[in-house]
């Protein structure tokens, strides 16, 4: 892979843009030594994070308008995705692990995305700066098959 992968995109707060975001994440993850399954999982984790922001962050704004910035940095050892918005505070770390059986019994359709993010990514860290932005930083590390340095050729 190239020494370093950097991608950045800014998308309007509209779920129509999820397809494009997934494409960008997929392209970046495919350049890191992840297997195909891990690439798919990382795409899912980012999609869940952005979908969650699109549902909550700008709901108090007129016409729900706002932007979401996705920044990806990756090398042969890891992929880091930072997602920023300037909407209201929403800390995914405050969400408890869902009980799927309860979801079924109660007919709950939402509230599973953060669980998936946590399951898939090695690090999920949220930072809120009042009046500035929400920042969600997620990292996935490469696990080499031999257990050694994944950056060795």
């Amino acid at each position: 892979m190239p020494g370093h992968v950097h991608k950045e995109l800014v998308a309007p707060n509209d779920t129509r843009h999820l397809v494009k975001i997934r494409e960008v994440v997929q392209e970046a993850a495919a350049q890191v030594p992840f297997d195909k399954r891990e690439v798919g999982r990382i795409v899912l984790a980012v999609d869940e994070a952005v979908s969650n922001i699109m549902e909550h962050a700008y709901e108090d704004q007129e016409n729900n308008e706002g932007d979401i910035r996705v920044t990806i940095d990756a090398d042969c050892s890891k992929m880091e995705v930072v997602i920023c918005d300037s909407g209201k505070e929403f800390n995914p770390e405050s969400i408890q692990v869902p009980d799927i059986s309860e979801h079924v019994q109660r007919g709950k359709k939402k509230g599973l995305g953060i669980f998936l993010m946590r399951q898939i990514m090695d690090e999920v860290k949220y930072t809120f700066v009042q009046g500035i932005r929400n920042e969600l930083r997620m990292v996935k590390y490469v696990r080499s098959q031999g257990g050694g340095d994944s950056c060795q050729s």
Binding site: D47, I100, H103, L112
Partner: peptide, 15 residues
């Protein structure tokens, strides 16, 4: 492709 939003429809309708 399916995300939790899609799976959630099935989960929420099953009962």
């Amino acid at each position: 492709y399916i995300s939790s939003a899609g799976a959630g429809v099935f989960i929420g309708s099953l009962a």
